[in-house]
Design a protein around this nucleic acid. Structure first.
Length: 471
RNA sequence: GUCCCCAUCGUCUAACGGUUAGGACACUGCCCUUUCACGGCAGUAAUAGGGGUUCGAAUCCCCUUGGGGACGCCA
């Protein structure tokens, strides 16, 4: 049988790291086996679901390249089908109306907790012919088996067993007529032919209930694979209300989708000692059976490292193309500076994100107004006047653009250093501070090549003004 | 509280009964060097604790401890 997996987020917020990894594993499993990957939006809770969240999730999936073969389906559009099953179960005694009010249930649970018991519905209306109380709109509950145990073989953690005595009759339809999550999942997974349910760890305890409902539907349950949670740096579970960050936030911060995917796939899964995986390699090697059993902690440092690895290995034109967006976000006109691919080649070894790359390159597009005072004191004192003037004179002799290249610039600068019997540092650093305002930039010849002749000479003049004053 | 699950360096992980317990991030040192990086080399650092099983246990079993999840007319 061909594999069918699904990702089924509830549209109550953005797509965060945890959800993205679950989606990735599910997608990978489908791709690995040449199966289909379905996207299904679980919006049965109409109060909390928003269209905006749906869009955000779709956007995140798209950015990561997690393409679906079917959907997105919306549970909110499948009401008729749910009603049909509900009516059938009611008619055949697999489900029943429950007239317990919210208040009664709260009381019940409180008392149970006080007695040290597991809080649960007491089954009062399960087999009850009493006349229903006035004015109470009932909800519908599923008749969970009272005896025996539910066993399933989790693809990730192996055999899991839960006694039916631990399970109560859960609400499958609210008193307002809307079906609930656990019920919809069961109907949908069956209708959509899902063969492998890959989902978060937090769903293990739902699984036995869902299996019981599947049995009520008279179908065999799918395979289940519960992937462990992702923890924040504090060791606490990453959730929407606790430190979870939208994947699109990473996009905004200049991370590459490839890097994030690579980071995510290695969180809870490994293939020997391999750290870098192309999309194809992930698909080729991924196996649910190799997924770890324990939760893992999100490590931003490693993500940064990976991002730089991708920055360095991707084609410069590709990176340059993506860079435009970040330049514009930083209010930099991409046309007002060096060729972007050349810029990428020069800066990617010292940038971990595209945002960083943009910031450290700003001086190549715009005149800087702020100087790094410490660097000025150190490198633009009176002693720097002569080297700077000499360099300026040499560079002024180079024609632009034919003679303006790193090799010629390097020759000019090292020539000055030799003439003045100074180390390269004594010449290059003043020049660097002069043109960038900081003590850090790519190799000075490359920096000047990227900056261009006109800007270079202007900034050298400006700096010489300062060194003279300092003298 | 009850049920379920989990446990190798600080972090991500390798090992699928026999290894000096390997790799990666981070950290430290050295090398390279016109700065910062990149890169190279080296180093610190782990099988939670206790019992079994076995010739042999990180690996299998039990207990303890610690962590997580679930216990909704949320998903």
């Amino acid at each position: 049988m061909s594999v069918v997996t699904r990702f089924a987020p509830s549209p109550t917020g953005f797509l965060h790291i945890g959800g993205a990894r679950t989606a990735l594993f599910s997608w990978l499993h489908a791709r690995r086996h040449g199966g289909r990957f379905i996207l299904r939006v679980e919006d049965t809770d109409r109060d909390r679901s928003t269209e905006e969240a749906t869009r955000a999730i779709l956007e995140g999936m798209h950015w990561l390249g997690l393409d679906h073969d079917e959907g997105p389906y919306f549970q909110s559009e499948r009401g008729e089908r749910y009603r049909e099953v509900l009516d059938d179960w009611l008619a055949t005694g697999k489900a029943y109306y429950c007239f317990r009010t919210k208040e009664e249930l709260d009381e019940l649970r409180e008392a149970q907790r006080a007695r040290g018991e597991k809080p649960r519905y007491d089954g009062y209306w399960r087999d009850n012919d009493e006349t229903p109380p006035e004015g109470v709109t009932p909800c519908i509950r599923f008749k969970n088996p009272l005896e025996g145990e539910v066993v399933f073989d989790d693809r990730i953690r192996g055999r899991v067993a839960v006694a039916n005595a631990e399970l109560d009759d859960l609400v499958i339809c609210r008193s307002d007529g809307s079906p609930t999550y656990n019920f919809c999942v069961v109907v949908d997974d069956y209708d959509m032919g899902v063969t492998d349910v890959v989902r978060g760890d937090d769903h293990v305890s739902n699984t036995p209930r869902q299996i019981n409902m599947l049995r009520a539907l008279d179908v065999e349950p799918p395979n289940y694979a519960h992937v462990p949670m992702i923890l924040g740096p504090d060791g606490k579970r990453l959730s929407k209300r606790h430190g979870a960050v939208s994947v699109m936030q990473y996009a905004e911060e200049g991370y590459l989708a490839e890097a994030l995917m690579n980071y995510l796939v290695r969180l809870g899964w490994a293939h020997g000692d391999q750290e870098i995986f192309s999309r194809g390699e992930m698909i080729e090697h991924f196996d649910l059976g190799d997924v770890n059993h324990s939760a893992s902690t999100f490590n931003p440092e490693k993500l940064r490292w990976l991002n730089q690895q991708y920055l360095k290995s991707l084609h410069p034109d590709d990176v340059a193309w993506r860079l435009r967006y970040y330049l514009e976000q930083a209010e930099i006109d991409p046309a007002s500076g060096p060729h972007l691919a050349d810029l990428v080649k020069a800066q990617r070894e010292r940038s971990t994100t595209l945002v960083e790359l943009v910031e450290s390159s700003r001086f190549l597009f715009q005149d800087f107004l702020e100087w790094d005072e410490k660097a000025v004191r150190k490198h633009l004192g009176g002693a720097a006047t002569e080297p700077l003037e000499r360099v300026r004179a040499e560079l002024a002799g180079l024609e632009f653009p034919e003679g303006w290249n790193a090799a010629a610039i390097h020759e000019a600068i090292s020539g000055v250093a030799q003439e003045l019997e100074l180390g390269m540092g004594k010449v290059a650093q003043p020049v660097r501070v002069a043109v960038s305002g900081t003590p850090v930039s790519p190799p000075i010849d490359t920096t000047l090549e990227l900056l261009g002749r006109e800007r270079t000479l202007y900034r050298l003049d400006r700096a010489i003004g300062r060194t003279r004053e300092a003298a």
